[in-house]
Design a protein around this nucleic acid. Sequence first.
DNA 1: TTGTACGCGTTATCAT
DNA 2: ATGATAACGCGTACAA
Lengths: 334, 334
Amino acid sequence: MNTTISDLARITGLAKSTISGVLNNKSGFSEKTRRKVLKAAEEHGYVPNEIARGLSSRSTGSIGLIIKDITNPFYNHITKGVQEIAREHGYTVFLCSSGEEHDTEIEHIEAMVRKRVDGLIIAPLLEDVAFEHIFALQRQQMPFVLLGKIPGLACDTFEFDDYDGGRQVTEHILANGHTRIGFVCGLKTSRASKLRYDAFVDVMNKRGLPIDERHVFREANGLADGQQIGRLLVDAEERPTALICFDDVIAIGVIRAFMDAGLSVPDDLSIVGFDDIDLTTFPLTSVSIPTYEAGKALGWTLFDRIFQRRLTDYQHIMFDQKLVVRSSVKNINP
Amino acid sequence: MNTTISDLARITGLAKSTISGVLNNKSGFSEKTRRKVLKAAEEHGYVPNEIARGLSSRSTGSIGLIIKDITNPFYNHITKGVQEIAREHGYTVFLCSSGEEHDTEIEHIEAMVRKRVDGLIIAPLLEDVAFEHIFALQRQQMPFVLLGKIPGLACDTFEFDDYDGGRQVTEHILANGHTRIGFVCGLKTSRASKLRYDAFVDVMNKRGLPIDERHVFREANGLADGQQIGRLLVDAEERPTALICFDDVIAIGVIRAFMDAGLSVPDDLSIVGFDDIDLTTFPLTSVSIPTYEAGKALGWTLFDRIFQRRLTDYQHIMFDQKLVVRSSVKNINP
DNA sequence: TTGTACGCGTTATCAT
DNA sequence: ATGATAACGCGTACAA
């Protein structure tokens, strides 16, 4: 059905190795045979079988990218960056989404190993989970790069400075005169959420300001959770004056709940988010994160490892986060 | 480095075929050897090599998904649906984005064929381009499913009823008293854009209403283009009272330009979009499209073909589009 | 310059 | 119940 180099050998009367050599642009073949091979390949619609090639050359020309959520713009931009670099290297990428579930993450990684990808880029769950599957990768000598850092694991890591991001938003809100501040945490498996919250707590403590536990929400994920929390706040007897949301998606959910209830952001509640996603019209003050650049950096570093271009120590890159002030925080200073 | 079944054979003193048989749960092995094999595999961290398996079994356990834009929620939801179905089948998916470029689409498809994916789901450019690469797939007997229909190509196709969507929005806008209506077309390679515009023209003609060419924009793609067109309209001496945008992303761009200029939607311009993307707070009247469901249907159908579960004729599914009225269209009836 | 032979890790088909 | 052997399609020494 599919013509192989053996077929071409039979057809041209040449040897398999000759066909292979010509097709791979090796030197040392007469122009005549070269032409003959190329012509036969063309005529019979020869398509190299990369599976066979991979088996023999021990390289599949594909990498795996494990993200948490396909529908979150945050990961879209990381994916885009990775894809671009992969393409530049003639590579193809398996995209896997863990859906924020640890078991799924493990399953995907194991599948990638079975598929013998040349390398892996992983955005793993980082809190409250075991890392055995990642350590296993190391033992198997699989090249990989992490979005996040795992204690005791020596590998290339990329991080966003979530603690500093959390600090920036908290100080921004305080600077605008707020003291009753709520916080919507993400999933407990999210280190980003933990760090942002830690920073919030630290800054509040430093100013001697109390944190009202009734205004701290946990385990929020996605638009629907944001909306539900928003509805809770709409009905709350004592609302905070400002709310820090783990990410923009949640923030948008909260805002929608407020708009639906006929309330105003920021008049009835000031809100900030993280990620600075662009597909929105609301002037949401948010923390910008260089996801696209990080995606490219992840890609470059992985290929450095795969091709052993960089034999130095592992890299640990920390990307800055930058507060983007718009108008979702009301200045209530006297 | 990686232990193989040959290694296990040597270790256990059994034959390769026995190892393979046990590992694949074939019947006809004594409980004793079964145990022995499993134990050895466990101890030596055996991981099956799916590349080798694929070479021998002529199936790679992976499919390719070719979309146009990773960062557009429209394709995110299709991707999500496809991924879910693939996962249910124990399959893995290569995600490729053409970035709306024909050459890139061709490149990706050729790469997928070389990688010998078991099947392909493609959202191809549909207008103003050649389809030779798709017909080639057919000749190569590669199972594939299309989002869109190609003249003269017999295969499974899924479509969204863009013409009807265009009709619905146009009639909705007319019903709200508008007559000076602008239209932002998408890329000329987009059939969806063409059909939506055709419907617009047809409805306008039927009502005897003129279309002002100054208010028809073409080749718009993405947020930035939307913003630029928005700025143009802000400064225009004679604005339309309503604007139909090819998709929500463009619509959001236009809205942003208006908000930046201190103008109001819908007071200064009524706007509708397509896709009904959810990550936004603006009450944009839009046309909802069942992308997630379509993604699942695409997946199911592809696997039907791959496993030859359905030997009947090709399917041609048309998904309805549904207008979702919010408040971005102002009623200016007297 | 071209051809032969073997390896890559599996599965499948025979025998035994 | 188990083992030997041949594919699968390609790359690559090594030989001619």
